[in-house]
Design a protein around this nucleic acid. Structure first.
Length: 261
DNA sequence: ATGGTGGAAGGTCCA
């Protein structure tokens, strides 16, 4: 089974890229973030025609929005309004032999990494703390967690650890909290579990850098985690960099895993 | 220290 996660930054604008990706890469389950559209405008029929009949999505106008589209049948598991906000940052489904799949879009957090003066950063930290208590509680269920977590937790998840230490996405309070969620929830960070920590890994390159490929100032903001007992079933994982060179690309690229389920 | 670009809007907010 092939599962992918991709922050698409408008699913309607980039529908052709999504189709190209899921066809070429033979994706079974695709998790999208930043769909940026209300449910009534989600391109549901178009996905059905491509063979992805099973869908669960939750969006709003202009901002946020998550979707799971699948060739395989699943049951809707629901969603959580983290931080008591109905802002469409999470959905989950159950498929196969009782496997839970969570799709997250964690708040970006604004520019200023200070919870006192920046409410967006406070929201991000609160969101992470809620994730931590939620996943630390129940570890028996087999789980997969994917999404744009808007944090690059390790030194080689950014182009310059030193220069980004005070930049939102790589500050100690964020990276430490994210690593804490991973360890207290018995998660495996798939891409890092199969890649030496000395090796740079990025899934996002800013639009503001015109020559993104040459400057290569990326960050690993997009993640796939699996619960400990599922990890032996993971066969491969890849960050699919190619899409960043496509016409009118998203600033994020997909992360793909193959897992025996 | 600043600004650079892109999306949904049709203001500006957000990333």
């Amino acid at each position: 089974m092939r599962i992918a996660t991709w922050n698409i930054n408008s699913v309607r604008l980039r529908l052709p890229q999504v189709f190209r990706f899921i066809q070429e890469q033979k994706i079974d389950i695709l998790c999208l973030q930043e769909t940026k559209t209300e449910d009534q405008y989600f391109p549901s029929e178009e996905f059905s025609k491509q063979g992805y009949a099973h869908q669960y999505f939750r969006g709003e106008k202009s901002y946020n929005g998550v979707a799971i589209i699948s060739k395989l049948k699943f049951q809707e598991n629901g969603y959580i309004n983290w931080c008591n906000k109905d802002d469409c940052r999470h959905i989950s489904v159950r498929f196969g032999e009782e496997v839970e799949l969570h799709n997250f879009y964690v708040p970006a957090g604004g520019d200023e990494p200070d919870i006192v003066i920046n409410p967006k950063f406070l929201h991000k930290i609160d969101f992470l703390n809620e994730m931590k208590s939620y996943f630390a509680e129940e570890k028996k269920t087999k789980k997969i967690l994917v999404g744009d977590l808007n944090i690059a937790p390790l030194e080689n998840d950014v182009w310059s650890h030193k220069q980004l230490l005070n930049v939102v996405s790589h500050t100690p309070i964020e990276t430490e909290t994210l690593l804490d969620i991973i360890s207290s929830g018995d998660w495996f960070d798939v891409m890092r579990s199969i890649t030496p920590h000395e090796e740079k890994l990025y899934s996002w390159w800013s639009y503001r850098n015109r020559n993104w490929e040459v400057s290569n100032r990326g960050r690993r903001l997009d993640h796939v985690w699996v619960s400990k007992k599922l990890f032996p079933q993971v066969k491969s994982g890849v960050i699919y960099r190619e899409t960043r060179s496509w016409e009118r690309p998203s600033d994020h690229v997909p992360v793909i895993i193959d897992i025996d389920i």
